[in-house]
Design a binder for these strands. Sequence first.
DNA 1: TTGCTTGTTTATCGAGTGAAAAATTAACCT
DNA 2: AGGTTAATTTTTCACTCGATAAACAAGCAA
Lengths: 222, 222
Amino acid sequence: MPDATHAAKKDDKPRRRLSSDERRADFIQKSIKLFAEEGFESSTRELARRLGVTQPLLYRYFPSKQDLVSAVYDEVYVRRWRPEWEALIADRSRPLTERLCAFYGVYTDAIFHPDWIRIYLYSGLKGEEINARYMRVVTTRILAPIFAEVRHEAGLPERAPTEEEIDKLWVIHGGIFYFGVVKLVYAKTPPRHKDSAVAFGVRAMIEELKREFSEEERAPRR
Amino acid sequence: MPDATHAAKKDDKPRRRLSSDERRADFIQKSIKLFAEEGFESSTRELARRLGVTQPLLYRYFPSKQDLVSAVYDEVYVRRWRPEWEALIADRSRPLTERLCAFYGVYTDAIFHPDWIRIYLYSGLKGEEINARYMRVVTTRILAPIFAEVRHEAGLPERAPTEEEIDKLWVIHGGIFYFGVVKLVYAKTPPRHKDSAVAFGVRAMIEELKREFSEEERAPRR
DNA sequence: TTGCTTGTTTATCGAGTGAAAAATTAACCT
DNA sequence: AGGTTAATTTTTCACTCGATAAACAAGCAA
């Protein structure tokens, strides 16, 4: 009797054959979907089933399942970052609020997808190093520049943010991100008020930062 | 030869015996730790190993692993909620900012533990119904009351928040929660600036809400 | 057609999974 | 002491997991 545990197709009439590159890309794309849905413990057999191939074929393209996971990380984390985002934040020809709303508009357009958010959360829970690296990138490429721009708009001299100040920025940045988690992961509904939620967070962050800066001016520390 | 896959202790000298209630509670407490660390796919054998008992004993106390998971949900979600939190928010004898800082102080004291946060994230990714229920509780017992208090402090008539306004409150509430995620899950370090991060979020939220209310007063909708 | 390359399947292994049934034994009650 | 209850272990099953080796077959070049 035929072993069904590796069956590729029910009707094995049209057994097409892909080039090495196509097949590899197919594995990664379908893995993103599967891992996002069910986590990284998803079986290689379920993945193969979705691809319409048998399970051992995976090991022709990836030495181990962990190598496939790493390829998924690379595709999701690294390839979706747009360097032009950083220029958007620092473009002083536009009002700061407008700039930051524009930045968080395109940033959330990029990451507010169930695939991205769920893989991010899963890998974070796994304690993957790439997660910590991503957090450092956010800190230095987004939060610190925002801090510098708010100070500039407030007419204050440039200064590196303290750890505590970065934490305050994380509350807003994380709040915007977590708004996406609530909508896409928990409620499974499109984020209808994304723009006004972003604008609320941006304005609240800028104004509260300015307020704290002016208090600091009045009573300098140390 | 003895089968090691179910071994409880190496030295089986002191084989103590617990009461039904103690053992059941022990299963739940150790499950919280284990599931928080490794997710709900953790094996029942690993759990038994940590308890110092054999794996089939679990099935004397829980019909299935899923029943154990449900017991963990109950312990973590339901039992940690403090009804007095709601009174804290509505206590108009104190200034609103102070009230909300106090509320978020004790609320984060309750939930800013790796166990709670990780189980919350894991169960949310699994799409568990209890997660959606918790979100509704947060909305009606925390966010809507905060909305009412801000309006009251602004001298405005009572009014139910729109979905869009609740979303704005989620940005701050979620931001405070996600600050805990960043510290406890990603960075694995105690949230040193918890109080000032909370105060930042609270003040930013209150002031920005007031600002939007006053704009609304100037140009009423519809 | 022949023959070679390579994408793909078949078959299988060893370890680990949740769960059921039955045997064992510690603790309590007369 | 003896006897009973119930906590715990032993044994085992059917299944799933990631991974390997070998057989097969589609496409292409001669």
